[in-house]
């Protein structure tokens, strides 16, 4: 069970292979993609930045929690950093278990916790030319909202 930060394209097939287990009857994966709009604005690209050392510590803690809560055989997750374009994959989560219930539940739990807790930030670059760090506004209606996830 590993969570990693990478600056390279996420290699899905290699990651999926690490989930293989003889007792596994279910595999659930989640991919978060860069989309072309957010909160009514046309998005041109997203810039991700991480405090990699603490992000990996906290991400691995989340995978450990998932293993305690759900009956898992394997869990892996990767988050990309750098300047990503529309359609690029920003995050991948994969789990394997004997049956589908824990696989779906754990996959959802892991992505939700990653988004809420891991020190990763994203800056949206808009088609109109401006850019903003999501969740960091100190003025306006979204100043304290959990606005702007890509996924």
């Amino acid at each position: 069970m590993h969570f990693k930060i990478t600056s390279k394209t996420i290699a899905v097939s290699e990651l999926a292979n690490t989930l293989q287990h003889e007792r596994a009857g279910a595999c659930a994966t989640f991919e978060g993609w860069v989309r072309n709009h957010n909160e009514g604005q046309a998005v041109a690209s997203l810039e991700y930045e991480a405090y990699a050392e603490l992000a990996e510590t906290e991400g691995n803690r989340i995978l450990d929690e998932a293993r305690e809560k759900f009956d898992l055989l394997a869990a892996e997750a990767v988050h990309r950093v750098g300047h990503l374009q529309i359609g690029d994959m920003a995050v991948w989560v994969g789990v394997a278990s004997a049956h589908r219930g824990p696989a779906f539940d754990a996959c959802r739990f892991i992505i939700d916790e990653l988004k809420a807790r891991v020190p990763i930030w994203k800056k949206e670059h808009y088609v109109a030319g401006e850019s903003t760090w999501i969740n960091c506004a100190t003025k306006g209606e979204f100043s304290t909202d959990d606005a702007g996830p890509s996924s």
Binding site: L114, W133, S151
Partner: peptide
């Protein structure tokens, strides 16, 4: 020391 702004992964 690191100050962690509101996170926004995913």
């Amino acid at each position: 020391v690191v100050f962690i702004p509101p996170v926004a992964g995913g």
